[in-house]
Simulated assay, not measured.
Amino acid sequence: MDPRIREHADVIVDHSIDLSAGDDIVIDAHPVSEDLVVALHEAAADRGANPLVVQERLGERFRRAYLRNREEFETPSHVQALYEEMDAYIAIRGSANVTETSDVDPEVTSAYQQAQQPLLNERLSKTWCLTQFPAAANAQLAQMSTEGYENFVWDAVLKDWDAVREHQSQMVEILDPAQEVRIVSGETTDVTMSVAGNETLNDYGEKNLPGGEVFTAPVRDSVEGEVLFDKPLYHQGREVTGVRLRFEDGEVVSHSAEKNEDLLTEVLDTDEGARYLGELGIGMNRDIDRFTYNMLFDEKMGDTVHMAIGRAYEENVGEANEQNESAVHVDMIVDMSEDSYIEVDGEVVQRNGTFVFEDGFED
């Protein structure tokens, strides 16, 4: 076994979820991630915890078979009971075929996601971590060799997360007390939103591993303007490109996409909350230096911002504000490396990817 796999497992249990003796943990993983699952079992044994492996969230072939043969769904009470009893949840991305579910009707997927929402809410209420195993299919999607992708993943995961937290805290200090944020990129993106009363969180490899962003939630009805998401979105096994959204009073009132617009429409029609923004995130991890069609990494890239339609994270939403509820949370990315800036309460805090607290900001 590659020694970095055991290092990866140690980061998960010691840094991301702080595993303790007696903890009951659920590990959700595709079989291609078996080596990391084995390493997690070793780590759990060393710490006196109790692991259970499922494929409830990350299965592919059997999930495709189920969705292609059923149209109406209900929340499975036995799975709900499992999540209620667990202390921590580890989801490991890793695929044998990243397009396995591409021929599932988006309407069916939407109905399934709505039935699964109580399970999602329960998972998010517990200690959790989402990470990646460098499987060959994911390397292929990223247009990288398997070895190159392994190096990419573990370079992003095995970092000094205390140093990352310290660096990113400078942006948290700017954004957390803010009233309004404006994002401008070229002639295609100009959007404003209130973040007043909401909390900015510092992602340094805990819930998401790798980390490398700061993120908050817009006030639900405050988003105004237009956005071109100029990085592709890979969702439900299909690529969606050139997504354009126009917001009025927080709601998406018009949308388009250059490719697979029908899938975008189905996502927006999932429920009422799917037409509102649930997250604004600012990528700050410059070790993630290439786009890989994997949002766990892509949203953390330096010189980017991302916005998620759908569910807002409860931790981001202040007591006086409304949490946007939805069965979906779909991130999309804007490149901020050229002819772009982020403005907070009328002051430019990032220009062409460089933050106000970094060298070169005034150049």
Rank of each mutant, 00 (worst) to 15 (best):
M1Y: 04
I5Q: 01
D14H: 08
H15G: 05
D18F: 02
D24S: 15
V37G: 10
A44T: 09
R64I: 06
F73R: 12
E74M: 09
T75N: 13
H78G: 05
I90L: 12
A91Y: 10
R93W: 12
G94I: 07
S95K: 07
N97C: 00
N97K: 10
V98R: 11
S102K: 10
P106I: 00
P106Q: 05
T109Y: 12
L124H: 01
L124G: 13
L130S: 09
Q132P: 01
E150S: 14
N151Q: 15
D155W: 09
D155Q: 12
A156R: 10
A156M: 11
W161L: 10
V164A: 14
I183R: 03
G186K: 03
T189M: 13
D190S: 14
N198C: 08
E206Y: 08
G212W: 03
F215K: 10
A217Y: 01
V219I: 13
S222C: 01
L228I: 06
D230F: 09
R238E: 09
G242T: 06
R244I: 06
R246Q: 14
D249I: 04
G250E: 06
S254F: 00
A257W: 02
D262K: 04
L263G: 06
V267M: 14
L268M: 07
D269W: 02
T270I: 10
N285A: 11
R286A: 14
R286N: 13
F291C: 04
N294D: 15
N294Q: 14
M295C: 04
F297M: 11
T304D: 02
M307H: 07
G318R: 01
E325G: 06
E325C: 05
E325S: 12
S326G: 08
I333F: 03
I333R: 01
I342V: 15
G346L: 00
G346P: 11
Q350G: 04
N352C: 02
F355Y: 15
